[in-house]
Design a protein around this nucleic acid. Structure first.
Lengths: 159, 159
DNA sequence: TCACTATCCGACTTAATTGGTCGGAGATCA
DNA sequence: TGATCTCCGACCAATTAAGTCGGATAGTGA
């Protein structure tokens, strides 16, 4: 319930990866391509490509093709909010349908609908939550759970 | 995106209706059956029945069958949280899959997953939000959009 | 310059979840 | 005791998401 889609998951991972390559201290800034991310995170390549497509279309990342091509962050990490990412991949987000319904297909329950107002409140709260968290927060702010590429013998250490 | 299911919608409406019939000031307390709710809110009867079944199974309402039967709220409105309702109808709610994953099917992205921790924060915030709002809040606290059942003589008005 | 290669891009197919439907079992009231 | 009204559990269809495939485009090296 309320689970976000694989596309959203993949999108967030990819963006986070691109951001840390581009702005992180460890490696020097470079372009990163679909295949690299897919292999790093075990994501089906073509699906990830689709996700990156959408993000590019919505102006969150820039695409450069040809050999040595790849993707680049279009904005700085603190300018990209989680809400923007999710909306780019899944359309406008809303708990209730009637929040963004067009003329003609309003729900049959409308007339007696008593749950709309309180749910809209919840929806707004969630939106603010997602809109206040940026890529920046996902990168540096919180430590990784398990770090594999550092010391392999710590693999078993979880949570 | 993040939209809650029809079942959840229907469930909330039904509970709200039952609550206001049982505890509201307008009419005297009585049992309410599936058909009545379905007609009132234009919900497919059988689907609503399924929803009420689930709620009954999870101890949120009591079922009484036979003629003059119907449903009754099992707890007082301020004891029933939105989170409880949603979980009864849709299983445990979580933004990320890995929050309640069992042994064996952990996601392939786990090893490098950098987005888990921040997303869990978001998830907790949302949960608290839903867990702090009760049926009571949905009834009296917030005004209705359209108030049809206010004047008693309109009570019998059916369509 | 020209051909090759590696990339992005859009449409299609398949699997899963959700929404909706049907017939049966149990209980109550006349 | 019988008939009726209710809840209950299993079944089927439709929508949506997940994953796949081939084509188009741009850059590089000979």
């Amino acid at each position: 319930m309320l689970k976000l889609s694989k596309k959203a998951d993949y999108g967030l991972m990819a963006l986070q990866h691109i951001a840390s390559v581009q702005f992180g201290d460890v490696t020097r800034a470079r372009m990163v391509n679909t295949k690299e991310i897919a292999e790093e995170y075990n994501i089906p390549v073509e699906l990830l490509a689709k996700v990156l497509q959408a993000l590019s279309k919505n102006g969150l990342i820039e695409s450069h093709n040809g050999p040595k091509g790849g993707y680049l962050l279009a904005k700085s990490p603190q300018e990209v909010t989680i809400a923007q990412v999710l909306e780019s991949l899944e359309g406008p987000l809303g708990i209730v349908d009637c929040s963004h319904e067009k003329e003609g297909d309003l729900c049959m329950q409308r007339e007696h609908c008593t749950i709309r107002t309180p749910l809209l409140k919840v929806q707004n709260s969630i939106y603010q939550l997602l809109n206040n968290m940026t890529l920046q927060d996902m990168m540096g702010g919180t430590p990784l759970i398990t770090i594999q590429s550092v010391s392999p013998e710590q693999q078993g250490v979880e949570r």
